[in-house]
Design a protein around this nucleic acid. Structure first.
Length: 253
DNA sequence: ATGTCACAGTCCCTGTGA
């Protein structure tokens, strides 16, 4: 089973690339973030033509998350079931695995109300994951907008006092892991930076100025079956790329 | 360290968010 997570930064603007990528990489399950579409605009039929069932939770101009699957898609849950107006989380069961696609709030700045929203959002995610069916494997993936450690940041000295590196954010990721999950990329590649995002500005990609903020957390059963994890850096190159590259995990089920 | 991109509306430029 091949599972990918990809913040596409507008599925409208990116669909030609997404289609080509699906045909080339042929993932079984894809967690998408930032579709920036409402549900009527989401390309359900075009994805079906490529062999994918899909579920989308959109809100229009901003946010929007989806799950694509060749293994079936059941028991879809959109949002946390509270009054959060932002479309940032969708879950579904694909084959025998529970799959959660997350677009964690950016936070903007440590003194911004959006940072408080980010930490509260991560707490709700932890609670949702902690309440899962322990007999079912789970993948919790997406754009977390947090670097787990300084090693996941190209130059921590430039991020002092900024979001994406603060201790409360990192503690929130550790609390998520404490429910029994492991950061797949870091488990398989402890010594490779494996950045997944590069700012569009400053030629950041070519200078290697990246962050690892797109993560796949898996339970112990899936970790034991994990055979590969990699970043598809080619998707950050060429015409009209997203600022994020897909992160892929492979499992021998 | 801000050299970009995408969005919506005020529409062929500007403010906002990332």
């Amino acid at each position: 089973m091949k599972v990918a997570t990809w913040n596409v930064n507008s599925l409208t603007a990116r669909f030609a690339r997404v289609e080509a990528w699906l045909a080339t990489r042929n993932p079984d399950v894809v967690l998408i973030q930032e579709t920036k579409q409402n549900d009527t605009k989401f390309p359900t039929k075009e994805l079906a033509d490529l062999g994918y069932e899909s579920a989308h939770y959109g809100q229009g101009q901003w946010n929007g998350v989806a799950i694509l699957s060749k293994l079936g898609i059941e028991d879809v849950a959109r949002g946390f079931g509270d009054d959060d107006p932002e479309a940032r989380i969708i879950a579904a069961t694909c084959g025998d695995v529970r799959v959660v696609s997350c677009y964690v709030p950016n936070g903007r700045a440590l003194d911004n109300p959006h940072y408080v929203y980010k930490l509260q959002w991560l707490e709700k995610l932890r609670d949702l994951v902690a309440a899962r069916d322990a007999n079912q494997s789970i993948v919790v993936g997406g754009d977390f907008n947090v670097t787990p450690t300084d090693f996941d940041c190209y130059d921590p000295s430039l991020f002092i006092g900024a979001t994406h590196v603060s201790e409360p954010e990192r503690e929130a990721l550790r609390a998520l892991e404490a429910t029994g999950l492991t950061d797949l990329t870091r488990a398989l590649h402890p010594d490779e930076p494996s950045y997944s995002w590069w700012d569009y500005r400053n030629g950041s990609f070519h200078r290697g100025w990246g962050l690892r903020i797109d993560l796949l957390f898996v339970d112990e059963a899936l970790l034991a079956k994990a055979s590969a994890s990699y970043v598809d850096r080619d998707e950050r190159k060429g015409e009209k790329p997203s600022d994020h590259a897909p992160v892929i995990g492979e499992f021998s089920l």
